[in-house]
């Protein structure tokens, strides 16, 4: 398979030492399902890097290999120069991991969970107690630290998860879908915490997400993964810029009218990449402002009633659509 990989941007990537370097990572599961078909990327120290992609694209497999839970068939991955396959014990000291499935022991309190995690990393005594207190404070769990985690809400548990991933002061923090299934307010809160962590400088963060808004807000660079290969990577701005032109979103009242509307748009000159997402038809055009009257006229001519026509700079969702061939929202539905 061709390696459809765009080179990391010349600035930034090369100057700082790579905290994380992934080369030619491949993995086929027993039973023949190919999860990764040669993945390459590099993350600089202190950078926040997001992996985007539909379900089954290989995001979680990549995460599992980098966190030493799984082994690749081919390729290498190094964290701060330590090979995760050859020296997993050494690599484990450098990484923190917040998995999709929580990992909080329900029979213990928040403090007990956090303390145990610290002990497993060789911390003890006052150092550990002080660090546990500080982390509980940071994620706002001090008041409920001595309550059983069974009583914690999803958001609270997630905050504890993040604290548990940080107790040994790792160099690289892996966040696998950190806000999936959380309320919007809690999501915003978690984003704030992540931004705070990233802002402190030393920590490198690799996150996977379904929410493109999340990647757009948090990540300095993103890579789009599809069917086990990286199909695009760069800063969100670069990726949006690569699309050329503007996004035009036509909304129809009746979902049944979406398909006729799509055909109308697809028939117009200068209109590219027309896709349907519920009652929204999206497309890219060279000159959106000039195209709106043409689009409206064409729709009226075919008897399709649009409830709104909006023009926007392409979003990361449009980028995703372009590369992964389906909308991230559609993927979640």
């Amino acid at each position: 398979m061709a390696h459809a990989v765009t080179a990391p941007p010349g600035t930034g990537g090369g100057e700082r030492a790579a905290a994380l370097a992934v080369r030619g990572l491949a993995k086929t599961y027993p039973g023949g399902r190919r999860a990764l078909a040669g993945v390459d990327f590099e993350v600089a120290a202190g950078e926040v890097f997001a992996l985007l992609g539909p379900n089954g694209a290989g995001k979680s497999t990549t995460m599992r290999i980098l966190t030493t839970l799984s082994r690749p068939d081919a390729g290498t991955a190094t964290i701060g120069g330590v090979d995760v396959v050859r020296e997993p014990q050494k690599a484990r000291r450098l990484i923190g991991y917040v998995a999709q499935r929580s990992g909080v022991d329900a029979s213990g309190t928040g403090r007990e969970n956090l303390t145990l995690q610290g002990r497993l990393h060789g911390l003890s005594g006052r150092t550990l107690a002080a660090r546990v207190d500080a982390l509980l404070e940071t994620v706002g769990l001090t008041e409920i630290a001595d309550r059983g985690t069974r009583e914690y809400s999803g958001g609270t548990r997630r905050k504890l998860d993040i604290a548990m991933g940080l107790v040994h002061e790792p160099r690289v923090l892996f966040l696998d879908e950190p806000t999936t299934g959380l309320d919007p307010e809690v999501r915003a809160e978690i984003w704030e915490h992540i931004t705070g962590l990233a802002g402190a400088g030393a920590l490198t963060i690799l996150l996977t997400t379904h929410y493109l808004e999340e990647a757009d807000r948090l990540a300095g660079r993103v890579a789009i993964l599809d069917r086990g290969t990286i199909v695009a990577q760069g800063t969100p701005a670069e990726l949006k810029g690569d699309l050329r032109g503007d996004a035009i979103h036509v909304e129809v009242l009746d979902p049944a009218a979406a398909e006729p509307a799509r055909r109308v748009l697809a028939g117009l000159a200068r209109v590219r990449e027309v896709t349907v997402d519920g009652v929204t038809v999206r497309a890219l055009v060279e000159d959106a402002a000039g195209a709106v009257p043409l689009v409206l006229a064409a729709l009226t001519e075919r008897g399709v009633t649009a409830s709104s026509v909006a023009v926007a700079r392409p979003s990361l969702d449009d980028v995703y659509l372009h590369y992964a061939g389906r909308s991230a929202k559609e993927e979640r539905a």
């Binding site: 998995a99 999709q100 499935r101 929580s102 497993l120």
Partner: peptide, 13 residues
């Protein structure tokens, strides 16, 4: 199922 085991396996225990 609860991810507790993975959490331990990622640590140097």
């Amino acid at each position: 199922d609860h991810g507790v085991l993975d959490r331990f396996l990622v640590s140097p225990v």
